[in-house]
Amino acid sequence: MNIFRLVGDMSHLLAIIILLMKMWKSRSVAGISGKSQILFAIVFTTRYLDLFTSFVSIYNTSMKVFFIGTSYVTVYFIYQHFKPTYDSNHDTFRVEFLIVPVGGLAFLVNHEFSLLEILWTFSIYLESVAILPQLFMVSKTGEAESITSHYLFALGSYRALYLLNWIYRYYFEGFFDLIAVVAGCVQTILYCDFFYLYITKVLKGKKISLPA
């Protein structure tokens, strides 16, 4: 494992912990898109089915279990435990517009036409766009709490770091996965506008608020 991959994973872990801490400490899920979190739960569930078929390492298994577990805890917090604080009026992105095309694409463009492989491909494609309901919510309400911004920054950085990891692996290991790389690029590009706002506003102590 190279440094980019490790820091990327840690960034992903940090994002999830920030989100859980925000919800738990403030007893609120305000500003968080339940739809994006459902998509992430689907992403982890469909990607890590290989937990049942192959063992890579303790690190690999524990991270996978952590990601799946916390994604369900997050969805539970939003739709059950802290439901009264969930801002469903602003969480109106139509997820079927993501799931249906992504499902079709995974069916058509994959490495191997087998169930696990198609589900893996589906999860890679879906992850690349899963943040859209959350970004849509931020643009609709025109603001994001600082803690939500930190969460989004850590989550966005993770895939950007994976891009560096793939460049490294291409040069030093001859490893190249076109599906993951293209989806990773799409995913990172979707965050660019947010990254800009984060650097120009949040890091200077202001919260993100967009003109109405």
Partner: peptide, 10 residues
């Protein structure tokens, strides 16, 4: 092998 290396990532 290719398969294994891919699944090594998260």
């Amino acid at each position: 092998l290719e398969e294994q290396r891919k699944k090594d990532e998260l």
